[in-house]
Design a protein around this nucleic acid. Structure first.
Lengths: 341, 341
DNA sequence: TGGATTTACTAAACCGATTTAGTAGACCTC
DNA sequence: GAGGTCTACTAAATCGGTTTAGTAAATCCA
């Protein structure tokens, strides 16, 4: 029903080729002819059919965004900037949520390939298997964001997890904490390892030779995991005086559990979160956190996708760490030495 | 480079038509022939080109989701269920953020039409003009969610705003509040009017004949608006003892401002929020809120889009209100009669 | 004035599916 | 053995663009 190129050409008394080439700027026409085309376009309300265009061009002017869960504020913030950056360039974004399922990850990566997506932004919370790395390698343009995909050949953009862990460690050490629990995601995750290492290093450097200890408990990045790990930590009767959590989601579960158990933050247990996508300054108590550059991550991914030199064979080896910052609030205090946690 | 239908046909010793029709189930072939096709598909790793398919079929197996801002937890939650429901049906979702700009709203609605989107889920925070209603009318399948579009011909799915306002009003009345401020979005918005009316009605019904008053201050649904309106309210020296806000975003700005001004919640000022997409139970104090069915809204929209009887001429007149609930926490208390707010 | 160049286009192939209308041959029936 | 029916397909048009290779006519240049 809508007018197509042929209609416009007929209306303007030209061939479809002439109209197409004029509209795409690959043909210089005299003023008078151009006017005829513009007028025909106006009169018929012509809008090119994007599917025909994509079929013909073999590309889709589309950015594919793959995240575990869009309801997670971190990924929502990232998605917001991906969308903004993409639409500013006339690109459309396709959104896929994987629920952290490998099968879904692979399925949507293959879909992106089928669609000749002009760029894929891939995020996962798991440590993906080789099949995911292969599916990514099959894409002409993809960037991996937030969590590493071992063996994948694509540029990667991360938060500076090691630095985040370090800042948390230093901060806790300054408050005289020596035993800290890290409650985070899968221990095989790059982010988990980097944060835990940074944490331990910061703790050590800030403790002036005192003995320090980091206990790692892991699960998934969700509220239920936060509850479960906090419960496990408390039940284990360890001597940790502070908790560093891997995400706001986990933090929520931890806070709920601590509160239910009557463990006061920060008097009985100090807490630092990692994310800062939520309004932690309004929490009770306001939660000290390492703020991840969620928006910047998304923006940078789109930049790489659209402005990167993809003929440069070294691009897929690029790894960037974007700066994080420690936002001090009120969930860290000196350990309560009176009683064991 | 990837194999196409013709390659598969050649490999199987058949015509492309036969292969296509078999793959789409419109042709019954003998077992042996079927096996030949399946094998060729396997061997060549054939995957249909979706753009060719779409061009040919005139549809796209795509749901278009249009929201003001995906970083807003309410829309993020809605998006999550839209994505889940859509992908469960083999549909892809295209995401557009409008930043509440009419020009963007119209542009993306037109894009959706160009793409022969199989369904559009449209959300706005503004009171859109006639041009938006027209752009929606031009779509074969669209549903309007969360906020009304005057004059649009499309099914609409809302939270039960009037009931939400009523519940808040009753609750405040029970705590002896008589003067309440509603800080919300544009007063021309259907949601604003419904909530304010419900609020007043609830307040009146709960106040046993006492005189009640509702003051409405409005702006946009964001944190900055919350700060500005709270400041205006406080500076105006009114006698309101409670604030009912139109969204968690506004609530955040209000809480920040109250805190900065030394106005205690709930001792000096009670507060009820509307949304509940955030972790309000961890706030200081835990914030009583009317919880919107964000996820259900998204789910219902996709249901209507995909299972609705679109031949039924009355469908575009459908209006549904999904139930809300009041979650009582600790931000409401009896008014402090000692001093004026 | 005749060949070379430039201007202003166009014919037709192509992207990769779907689908309508039909056909060749086997079998069945009377 | 003629006509009808059924089986197993296929030829070719179509969706609506883009692009390559080319052409007719006008202009330039010597």
């Amino acid at each position: 029903m809508p007018a197509n190129l042929k209609d416009v050409a007929r209306e303007a008394g030209l061939s479809p080729a002439a109209v197409s080439r004029h509209l795409n700027g690959s043909l210089d026409l005299p003023q008078e002819t151009r006017a005829r085309i513009e007028e025909a376009v106006q009169r018929l309300g012509y809008r090119p059919n994007p599917h025909a265009r994509r079929l013909s061009l073999g590309r889709s002017d589309t950015i594919t965004l793959i995240v575990p869960d869009i309801a997670n504020p971190f990924f929502a913030a990232l998605a917001a900037t991906v969308e903004r950056a993409a639409s500013a360039r006339g690109m459309i974004v396709q959104l896929h949520a994987t629920s952290n399922l490998e099968s879904r990850e692979i399925a949507v990566l293959e879909l992106a390939a089928d669609h000749r997506s002009d760029g894929v932004v891939f995020c996962t919370n798991r440590r993906p298997g080789a099949a995911v790395a292969e599916a990514i390698a099959a894409l002409p343009r993809a960037v991996i964001v937030d969590e590493a995909v071992p063996g994948a050949s694509a540029p990667q953009v991360f938060a500076d997890n090691a630095q985040g862990g370090y800042l948390a460690g230093r901060h806790l050490a300054e408050w005289r904490h020596r035993r800290v629990a890290y409650l985070g995601g899968d221990p095989m995750l790059m982010s988990t390892r980097q944060r835990a290492e940074g944490l331990e290093r910061g703790l050590r450097e800030g403790s002036e030779g005192a003995e320090v200890g980091v206990r790692i408990l892991s699960g998934r990045h969700d509220v239920a995991t936060g509850r479960a790990l906090a419960t496990a930590l408390l039940d284990s009767g360890g001597d940790e005086t502070a908790i560093f959590v891997g995400s706001d989601e986990i933090a929520i579960g931890v806070i709920e559990t601590l509160r239910a158990r009557g463990v006061r933050i920060p008097q009985d247990m100090s807490l630092i979160s990692f994310d800062g996508a939520r309004a932690l300054h309004l929490y009770d108590p306001p939660i000290t956190a390492v703020r991840q550059p969620a928006r910047r991550l998304g923006e940078r991914a789109v930049e790489l996708l659209l402005d990167g030199d993809w003929d440069d064979r070294t691009l897929p080896e690029l790894v960037e760490y974007l700066p994080v910052e420690l936002v001090e609030r009120a969930s860290v205090a000196a350990p309560n030495t009176a009683e064991p946690g």
